[in-house]
Design a protein around this nucleic acid. Structure first.
Lengths: 218, 218
DNA sequence: TCGTCAATTTACCAATTGGTAAAAAAGCGA
DNA sequence: TCGCTTTTTTACCAATTGGTAAATTGACGA
């Protein structure tokens, strides 16, 4: 029922998605088209709300042709999620233990907000997945996200202990950064109703910088 | 294709959902059962991810029996959303113009966090709907949510102008309150992975009170 | 006890949808 | 140009799912 197809089991399952094997010119191009289309459709309708026909139409390919490139709907979704996780982790990874604590955290807020603005579809895809209880992402959260968060939380705790920022629960701090920045992407439909039309992001950037600066100032 | 059934068009469409007409004992009971079941299923899987069969099973009724009480899947969903909106607005409505500004806002944060804890399914139902672009809620956001937010935003602006709280963009403040509190319900799956098991809400309450207090202190 | 209306079940559809088989059409190196 | 592989299309399925028709059962006042 699953795992038909292309990749003979060369190495073990990498948890990653990319086949990591052969990729002809046209393969690369069409896989990308499909993933682009799938991002558009999945982020707008969720996993079950999206149909292969929609993705096919968006990608400009036929449905069977899409299934020539990917094992099935679920495989496409998982591939997208795995790719996304790396992009998503990056801004947090950039938080530098050697830097000035307050500025490092504020820069992180800034990067997250920039991502919400630049990649709202990715944000929504992720939000959809977590909202449904992370059915296809559980392991990834454990294996990739948790260690990174643990590490950065320890760093923030050190900074606080050294009196370089105000004492805070590092995990709740991180949650509040995620929540406030991603809100502008995930709840865009609501934000657009409530904000007097026109770029909300500049105002958001100012507001959030002010808020987290006050929060962390010793 | 739609709007078959029960209610002859007595008055105009109220935008609300409740038929506002006759309700026998058993009607009341079964409608409630169905809505309870639907909340469970819709909040866990989203609109398209939920099936009438699931709702029927959860409610302990047969599918055709469910369609005897509601016109269709969409009607159930809309009914739920409309009910929810009132519950959702309530904590903001309680913000008292006569009260002490900082305490009023902190109490609002507290109420929202309590709701996220007590009604996570409602929070997720709402989040799902907004994430998909509020396809069945657009009018409601305009007509009910926006006026209230406008009013409370004006109030906060007054408070700030009077120097009773620090100057802030009231709408971004409200967004950040929504985002941070609802995060614990909507992203529960993620929070549970990252927080050392055991009630996160007490810690969240402390953290958020501290954050917004610092944010608003003059 | 009966008759009537409300409530429920049984038996079905028709449309949608994820997926497959196999033939046709491109690509492309020699 | 030939022959072989990769890519794409055509033609289908089987399962799921929202919804309906009609028969059946239950509630209950007269």
């Amino acid at each position: 029922m699953k795992d038909a197809g292309k990749n003979g089991g060369t190495a073990g399952k990498t948890l990653g998605a990319q086949p990591a094997v052969k990729h002809s010119r046209i393969q690369t191009r069409n896989r990308k088209r499909i993933l682009d289309a799938a991002l558009e459709v999945f982020s707008a309708h969720g996993f079950r709300g999206a149909t292969l026909d929609q993705i096919a139409a968006e990608a400009g390919l036929s449905k069977p042709n899409i299934l020539y490139y990917f094992d099935g709907k679920e495989t496409i979704h998982v591939t997208l999620l795995n790719q996304l996780m790396e992009t998503w982790l990056d801004p947090l990874e950039q938080m530098n233990p050697e830097g000035e604590p307050l500025e490092e955290i504020l820069a992180y807020v800034r990067r997250k907000l920039d991502m919400a603005q630049a990649y709202p579809r990715e944000s929504r895809l992720f939000a959809n997945e977590i909202l449904q209880g992370a059915p296809r992402m559980g392991p990834h959260l454990e294996k990739r996200l948790k260690p990174l968060v643990d590490q950065k939380a320890a760093l923030i705790t050190e900074w606080a202990a050294a009196g370089r920022i105000a004492p805070v629960d590092p995990r709740h701090l991180i949650f509040s950064i995620w929540a406030t920045t991603q809100h502008y992407a995930d709840f865009e439909a609501q934000v657009n109703v409530l904000m007097p039309e026109g770029g909300v992001f500049p105002g958001a950037a100012t507001y959030l910088e002010g808020m987290f600066r006050r929060m962390l100032k010793v």
